[in-house]
């Protein structure tokens, strides 16, 4: 369940996207990778997932440093990426092994936990964006991954669905205590979910700051403390110059 990145860099056609990223995640920790667009957050996540194995440096998952997809890792993409020819139920059982009955039972449990019971036989074209993303979440969680990688999973959703799914994620995390790496550009989301926020900056992206959020969960959205943290992050990203407009 341990995850460790040592000096991970990635170069695309001579252009370095991220440089010397070192992160150690405690088991069960939720880590946020935060940064502006193009700073290489997703690149780091893809390297961890094993979908991209042309990086330099070392990534060790439970001590295994092979550059490949590990079956202990789950990935929730920015888009639902459901297979359009399979109904919801078969999309969720897609990555499961074992007998059909077992798979169906597990899938039904998870569909219920994302609030989609009764929708098993629908096809992806019949789902709304939020429902499709919930199916994608169920599909990633149903294999009980020890490490869960999320690439801006809620960014395409409306504000209400987003909050709902964030709470859902925390619920699931409470039950399974997976180690989570969440890539996001939404500061509020990072503050609401993460134990630790790693701010990436620049081109090539490097780690700028690490922020440990000690608040107990469930956290109040938009509390005083959160606003304080948010100000700090915005400062680090040089985005907090609102006063220069007002003065």
């Amino acid at each position: 369940m341990s995850l460790e990145l040592k000096n991970v860099s990635r170069t695309f056609n001579g252009i370095t996207a991220v440089k010397n990223i070192s992160i150690t995640a405690e088991p069960g920790e939720i880590i946020g990778l935060l940064g502006t667009s193009g700073c290489g957050k997703s690149t780091v996540l893809r390297a961890i997932s094993g979908l991209d194995n042309d990086y330099d440096g070392e990534i060790s998952i439970n001590g295994n440093t092979k550059k490949e997809v590990h079956d202990t890792t789950g990935f929730i993409f920015q888009e639902p990426r459901l297979l359009p020819w399979l109904p919801v139920l078969d999309n969720v059982t897609f990555g499961l092994k074992g007998s059909r009955a077992e798979k169906v039972q597990r899938a039904k449990e998870y569909l219920e936990s994302v609030g989609l019971s009764g929708k098993e036989q629908l096809y992806p074209r019949q789902l709304s964006g939020g429902m499709a993303q919930r199916v994608a979440i169920a599909r990633a969680l149903v294999t009980s991954p020890e490490i869960l990688l999320l690439d801006e999973p809620f960014s395409a959703l409306d504000a209400f669905t987003k909050m709902q799914l964030q709470d859902l994620l925390l619920d699931v995390w409470n039950t399974y205590q997976s180690t989570v790496v969440l890539v996001t550009h939404d500061i509020d989301e990072a503050l609401y979910l993460c134990d630790r926020i790693i701010v990436l900056r620049g081109q090539p992206g490097v780690i700028d700051t690490e922020l440990v959020i000690k608040e107990e969960r469930p956290r109040a959205r938009g509390s005083q403390e959160m606003a304080e943290y948010k100000r700090k992050i915005l400062d680090r990203l040089d985005l907090n110059n609102a006063h220069s407009y007002t003065s």
């Binding site: 979908l51 079956d71 890792t73 789950g74 888009e79 990426r81």
Partner: peptide, 21 residues
């Protein structure tokens, strides 16, 4: 490519990728 990545994430072999995706 995005769907193929989903398959890869679930550790499908080349043959399974062909058949299932």
């Amino acid at each position: 490519r995005k769907l193929i990545e989903v398959g890869k994430m679930y550790g499908l072999s080349t043959f399974q990728l062909v058949r299932r995706i």
